[in-house]
């Protein structure tokens, strides 16, 4: 709910002209960035190789063992069991993949759509711009959550199978459908700015094709600001997934994700089993925190004028 504000300054800043290497050097010098990167790497490994972290299956849920308190390392249930008797650690470890995959897929595809449309609109103006701007407006007016509700309830009855990708497909489609607009706005604004820069005019007068000008000269200029947005957007999608799960329209049980775990755990926070909530919540907060820190650092690195 909060990135729209963060991601919509009135006009895009001109991307820093400093080379990537410079940015990398700045990044490395900041300890918070390094910690954030380590945290993300940890969860990425967990998503890729869940078996490294637990040998218990998240689908083995003897109901009579429900809400066992955490037993510490070495116990059968290091982080205890949840309300259905499933091992919390196993669910957590296996829940990383859908959560992260959803975030990456959503941000990636929204970015692609947003950049393409923004670039075309800013470059050609005229009717293309008119169409894109109207589309942006329409999608901005419909609140994301309402749209999510509609679309998700629309396809709720559709059977997609149970693979990791199928499980996240519906939330992904919705979040993409209503998540590409900020990128389009940004890129359109920076394209407008970059289009009239001297070297672009020069390239055009030398007879470069539109595609070449767009990809070689305009895009690199416009992409800087958008890149800085990415970590924050990923964080936003992870949080959004938790909210959708809370409303019962996210990933479908018995498949699992952090959002579902938090939703189920939040009921038990007072019922003598706070660990069901705290474990996934800690992971979610850590990941989001790491991503935002990284995003801040990236923005500062790409836009030296703002560096602290």
């Amino acid at each position: 709910m909060s990135d729209a504000a963060a991601s919509a300054p009135p006009a895009a800043r001109t991307a820093a002209s400093s080379p990537v290497a410079e940015a990398w050097r700045t990044l490395r010098r900041r300890p918070d960035t390094v910690i954030a990167a380590v945290v993300l790497l940890f969860f990425a490994v967990m998503a890729a190789f869940p078996r490294l972290f637990t040998s218990t299956s998240p689908r083995t849920c003897p109901i009579r063992e429900a809400r066992t308190a955490p037993q510490g390392w070495g116990g059968d249930h290091p982080l205890g069991t949840d309300a259905l008797g499933c091992d919390v650690l196993a669910t957590l470890v296996h829940g990383v993949r859908p959560s992260l995959l959803l975030a990456v897929v959503v941000v990636g595809i929204s970015l692609l759509i947003g950049v393409t449309l923004g670039l075309l609109a800013g470059y050609y103006l005229g009717w293309v711009d008119y169409l894109v701007s109207r589309a942006v407006e329409v999608f901005l007016v419909v609140p994301l959550l309402l749209a999510a509700l509609l679309v998700l309830s629309l396809f709720k009855g559709v059977d997609l199978g149970a693979g990791t990708f199928n499980v996240i497909l519906l939330p992904a489609v919705v979040l993409i459908l209503f998540g590409w607009m900020p990128y389009a706005r940004y890129v359109r604004a920076s394209t407008l700015e970059a289009k009239n820069l001297d070297y672009v005019t020069a390239a055009r007068s030398l007879g470069a094709s539109d595609v070449r000008i767009m990809t070689r000269h305009v895009l690199p200029n416009a992409i800087g600001t958008v890149t800085a947005l990415l970590p924050t957007s990923v964080a936003g999608v992870i949080s959004a997934e938790a909210v959708l799960s809370f409303l019962g329209i996210g990933v479908r049980p018995p498949a699992t994700s952090w959002g579902i775990q938090i939703e189920q755990g939040s009921q038990w926070v007072l019922g003598g089993a706070p660990h069901i909530l705290l474990a996934p919540l800690a992971c979610l907060v850590a990941t989001v925190l790491a991503l935002v820190v990284l995003g801040d650092a990236l923005r500062d690195a790409l836009d030296p004028r703002l560096a602290a």
Partner: peptide
């Protein structure tokens, strides 16, 4: 950043109960 990362529904549930 912490505020951002913390799901609002958890905040409200804890407040209410």
């Amino acid at each position: 950043v912490l505020i951002d990362a913390f799901p609002v529904f958890v905040l409200l549930i804890v407040y209410r109960y």
